[in-house]
């Protein structure tokens, strides 16, 4: 591990002063916040991330889960993943989110990991972790090892020829489906970032994961009032029953009028550099009967631009099946 300095701000303002003036996005920043440390410390030990200074924000508070005026819930950035998943209000009103969080990591990690940190966790691409190999995300300009290498777990949507890594979070897939809003504080005060705009596609700048500026701090994640509690689910498909990242995951949520779909939300994990949503696929579900045929059509629309690599062609068929299965489960449609 490279030497770094450590600070422990005692307020949000102090934390912001600590990162004031840093250019660019938080991914590239030399001064970084650390809370649970479940990902950042590992990456530092592996010499993948080399921050010069860590600001430990774990004592700032920001760990409450509160009602907000719009009828939704505010998830503190420093609330632990486990506390969030088991919060009675989250379980009752946003069961899809609770299920998604509990599908990730292990009990021990969820006890440490914070909500804000979950948004900023980095890809599990093998090449990103192995400093003996090329990786544009780790070292821009060195090339993408995965493109010509082992890419079974890699992206089928929204990738570029610079990077085919996928975002590893489960929680974020549900947050994307819920249209959550990320609240951040920065030098110009507070601002909100719609969840869809928080993470980025790799494009020509795969070394940048999100649009969070280097001088900003996530303070909370706001959930809208609509939680799709009646008809939603989170389905995760992986190589073992627990403690593995998603090959494909689906957050599916429906509003139903009888057997007719009024509106739908569909977000996929494990397939792209960010939780993947497709307005066309969701719009196409509205007004249709909640049937397997409808769900299959939605899957086909969502996957229409999917592009495969040498080892991950199976992900298209798997994603289609997972979408149909998740929508059927959300709708309560018999799947046979």
């Amino acid at each position: 591990m490279r030497a770094f300095s450590y600070g422990r701000p005692d307020s949000v303002d102090a934390a912001l002063r600590g990162v004031a003036g840093q250019p660019g996005t938080t991914t590239e920043a030399a001064v970084k916040f650390v809370a649970g440390g479940t990902n950042l410390l590992d990456l530092m030990k592996a010499d993948v991330m080399r921050p010069e200074r860590l600001l430990d924000i774990s004592r700032l508070g920001l760990d409450q889960i509160e009602e907000i005026e719009n009828g939704g819930l505010r998830l503190g950035a420093l609330a632990r993943n486990a506390d969030t998943a088991y919060d009675a209000r989250v379980q009752a009103r946003y069961p899809m989110l609770s299920k998604a969080i509990l599908a990730g990591a292990s009990a021990q990690l969820r006890n440490m990991a914070t909500n804000g940190g979950n948004l900023l966790q980095r890809t599990r691409c093998y090449y990103f972790y192995d400093t003996g190999t090329p990786c544009n995300k780790r070292e821009p300009g060195t090339g993408c090892g995965a493109l010509t290498g082992v890419n079974r777990i890699h992206a089928i949507l929204g990738a570029s020829d610079r990077c085919i890594a996928v975002h590893p979070s489960d929680m974020c897939v549900a947050l994307a489906a819920l249209d959550a809003v990320v609240r951040v504080s920065g030098p110009k005060g507070e601002r909100t970032i719609p969840f869809a705009d928080f993470h980025r596609l790799p494009g020509d700048t795969p070394h940048i994961d999100s649009n969070l500026a280097a001088d900003e701090l996530i303070t909370a994640i706001d959930l809208p009032a609509e939680g799709f509690a009646d008809h939603s689910t989170y389905l995760k498909v992986r190589d073992r029953a627990s403690y593995a990242f998603a090959l494909v995951s689906v957050a599916a949520a429906l509003k139903l009028d009888g057997q007719t779909i009024r509106s739908a939300r569909l977000a996929l994990g494990g397939v792209a550099h960010k939780p993947w949503r497709d307005p066309a696929a969701e719009a196409g579900l509205a007004g249709k009967p909640a049937s397997l045929e409808t769900f299959r059509e939605a899957a086909r629309v969502l996957l229409r631009d999917a592009r495969v690599q040498s080892h991950n062609a199976f992900k298209i068929g798997l994603a289609e099946r997972a979408i149909v299965r998740a929508l059927a489960e959300a709708a309560g449609v018999e799947h046979s």
């Binding site: 599990r124 093998y126 090449y127 972790y129 192995d130 003996g132 190999t133 090892g145 010509t148 290498g149 082992v150 777990i153 190589d239 073992r240 029953a241 627990s242 403690y243 593995a244 990242f245």
Partner: peptide, 22 residues
């Protein structure tokens, strides 16, 4: 990775062995 001649999934996150749930 045949091009690099290197084992790539060299950690317990990606080299899968059964967990309790399996």
């Amino acid at each position: 990775d045949q091009r690099l001649g290197r084992f790539m999934n060299h950690d317990f996150g990606e080299y899968h062995i059964p967990v309790n749930a399996d």
